[in-house]
C-alpha cells in the first residue's frame, strides 16, 4: 500500500492517492492533498465544497452527483474546475477525504 506524507505524518492512500481511512482526515491533511491536486491555497470557496462533500458523505455514505454538488453549493461546474483543476471527483473528493468515487461524481 502506498502512503502519503504530510507534516511529518504518514497516511495510507490507494494508487490514485485517495486516503484509505476516511476517519484520519483533518484540515491539515486536506491542505496537503490539495497541493498535489494543483490547489495552491484553500480559500473559503474551496472549503465550502469540501464541507458539503463531507456532510453529504456522512449522511448518505456516497459522494453526491456532480449536478447536486453544483446546485447545493451554488457553484457552477466551471468554477469547480477553477477551484479544483482536476475536477470534482479526482480533485475535490480526494481533498475531502472521501473514498474513491466509483463512476458517479
Amino acid at each position: 500500500m502506498a502512503s502519503f506524507e504530510y507534516n511529518g505524518k504518514a497516511v495510507d492512500v490507494d494508487e490514485d492517492g485517495f486516503i484509505e481511512d476516511p476517519s484520519v482526515w483533518n484540515e491539515e491533511l486536506a491542505k496537503a492533498l490539495a497541493e498535489i491536486e494543483g490547489v495552491t491555497e484553500m480559500s473559503d470557496d474551496h472549503w465550502k465544497i469540501v464541507h458539503y462533500l463531507r456532510d453529504y458523505y456522512k449522511q448518505f455514505g456516497i459522494a453526491p452527483m456532480v449536478r447536486k454538488l453544483c446546485k447545493e453549493t451554488d457553484t457552477p461546474l466551471k468554477r469547480i474546475y477553477e477551484l479544483y483543476p482536476s475536477g470534482p471527483a479526482k480533485g475535490a473528493c480526494k481533498v475531502a477525504g472521501l473514498p474513491k468515487p466509483t463512476g458517479c461524481v
Binding site: 494508487e15 490514485d16 485517495f18 494543483g38 474546475y81 483543476p85 482536476s86 475536477g87 470534482p88 471527483a89 479526482k90 474513491k100 468515487p101 466509483t102 463512476g103
Partner: peptide, 11 residues
C-alpha cells in the same frame, strides 16, 4: 477495477 486519474482541467 477502475481508477481515477486524469489531466488538469478535464474530468
Amino acid at each position: 477495477h477502475g481508477g481515477i486519474v486524469g489531466v488538469m482541467g478535464y474530468g
